[in-house]
Nucleic acid binder design. Structure first.
Lengths: 188, 188
DNA sequence: TTCTTAGCACCTAGGTGCCAAGAT
DNA sequence: ATCTTGGCACCTAGGTGCTAAGAA
């Protein structure tokens, strides 16, 4: 029903240990989260949204105050609400989602804690009569792609591999295929 | 209820004779069309859209085949549908509207004929139960600002005044105030 | 030490007017 | 003649990782 786009790319990062930069002003994810959706009712209106939470970790209750699985912020896809036909027409991109480490962020970006591991989740909700959600929606779909889990950092910890045309280091990733950031990569 | 933003700028252009470039790929308007909206019901959903048509001209029926006031394309503001509160929250910008002279344009841009005069119109429509319009909407508001009328051209006819830092000519306009295209203007 | 921040240089995408060549 | 087209150089806005300085 839902397929992750560029899954191979995600998997390669996942092997090395995906890291996502978070900044005060907000940073996009790389790779970006895009999905192909099928099986919706073309005429029904849906809302697509993402949240990012701390996956269940083996070290539960190590400290009593650890993140209490806070509600956290949501990223509602800007096309929402839209018909099933619209969502299935082409890839749905969450490219503009931004991550921040500023707990007082005023932009509505998703707030994360540096050096913690996170798991993005995708939710598909039927829009109610007011094109809203949460009030009377009892049923919705949630999709989790484990390979999109990542560690939030404020600067890359993995400087193993260098890319980026020229003498500059870049995001760790061997034999990087073409992507949204393509033409600038090179691999010594 | 609706106020044109940067009206002085529009008026100055209007005095000289506003011209808008149209290209095959689609061109934005300059100045851009922005309005301040008030008096809406904050909770009601509205759709804002523009059309651009040929104003009634004194030379009616000069040729029998003259443009038959064709329906023409509409530009639905990308935020549509949205609540009155949303529209009133800040300026509503139609900056991304694009004009083209390609009668087979595949992008949905507004199609115009070069060397013809046009008059943009703003429509405010209450969204129906399906967030659509046109089906059962019997009442809607239309606003026309005569100072936004313009002549569509494929290259500027008015080269009276030069602007743009450096030795290059630019859009005719004396003592251009700051605008979306600001820092590059100069006026010898 | 370890992590965070601010500033920077670089890059891309896309909008802009100009010019010369082409079409009518 | 006049108008149109395509290519170009220029500009802006915004995203990116790096580095050096700062904070814990």
């Amino acid at each position: 029903k839902v397929f992750l786009h560029e899954r191979e790319l995600w998997l390669k990062f996942h092997e090395v240990g995906t890291e996502m930069i978070i900044t005060k002003a907000g940073r996009r994810m790389f790779p970006s989260y895009k999905v192909k959706v099928t099986g919706l009712n073309p005429k029904t209106k849906y809302i697509l949204l993402m949240d990012i939470l701390i996956p269940v970790s083996p070290r539960r209750s190590v400290t009593g105050k650890a993140e209490p699985a806070m509600p956290g912020r949501l990223y509602v896809h800007p096309d929402s609400p839209a018909t099933g036909a619209h969502w299935m027409r082409q890839l749905v991109s969450f490219q503009k989602l931004k991550l921040t480490n500023n707990h007082l962020d005023p932009f509505g970006h998703i707030i994360l804690n540096s050096m913690h591991k996170y798991q993005p989740r995708l939710h598909i909700v039927k829009a109610d009569e007011n094109n809203g959600f949460g009030s009377k929606n009892t049923a919705f779909c949630t999709h989790v792609f484990p390979e999109t889990a990542f560690i939030a950092v404020t600067s890359y910890q993995n400087h193993k591999v260098r890319g980026w045309a020229g003498p500059r280091p870049c995001k760790p990733f061997p034999s990087c295929p073409s992507s949204s950031f393509t033409p600038s990569f090179s691999f010594p």
